[in-house]
């Protein structure tokens, strides 16, 4: 098979039926294809990001040796968009749900227990005797004042 292909190429060369393009130019042609298409669609006012994504999918998949049409690449683009949108909306929903849950939670109650000193323990009274008598006098004066306030005033003059 290879011999016949080689002979066929020799034949084309001999009868000047081939017009060879150097490998460097081949690369240049392949690389300029997409950019030129972009420029052309822009000139004609048909360029859009969505169309470009479809073209990128079309060219990318064909590069891997999978023969697809533009319609098929549109379907792939659509399915990818749906997957991305549903994935991100699920993420947003879950995130919002978590935040709402965190906000609506009642504030945590911290239980504090202060240990009372043992009943058997006595706190030593460090007051001086003078202070003690002063305080007692103040207390009895207060009681007297309270008694006076409580006694209703009589209309009958006292003797």
């Amino acid at each position: 098979m290879n011999t016949s292909v080689e002979q066929f190429h020799q034949l084309l060369g001999r009868y000047k039926l081939s017009r060879p393009v150097s490998p460097g130019d081949q690369e240049y042609i392949i690389n300029s294809r997409k950019q030129d298409l972009k420029d052309l669609l822009r000139k004609k006012g048909k360029y859009s990001l969505i169309l470009w994504i479809v073209i990128a999918i079309y060219a990318g998949i064909r590069k891997f040796g999978i023969h697809i049409t533009m319609v098929q690449s549109k379907i792939i683009a659509g399915m990818t968009a749906v997957a991305v949108v549903s994935g991100s909306s699920t993420g947003v929903y879950q995130g919002t749900k978590y935040v709402i849950k965190a906000i609506s939670k009642p504030p945590a109650k911290v239980e504090e227990k202060i240990d009372e000193p043992d009943s058997g323990m006595t706190i030593p009274d460090r007051r001086t005797t003078e202070e003690k008598t002063k305080e007692e006098k103040k207390k009895s004066a207060d009681i007297k004042n309270q008694d006076l306030d409580a006694t209703p005033l009589s209309d009958v003059p006292s003797l």
């Binding site: 084309l12 393009v21 081949q26 590069k63």
Partner: peptide, 18 residues
């Protein structure tokens, strides 16, 4: 045949494997 493209480059254009 005409432009002497390599199989690899032709594959890229045609959307086929080499």
């Amino acid at each position: 045949a005409t432009h002497n493209f390599t199989y690899g480059n032709a594959a890229g254009v045609l959307g086929l494997t080499r």
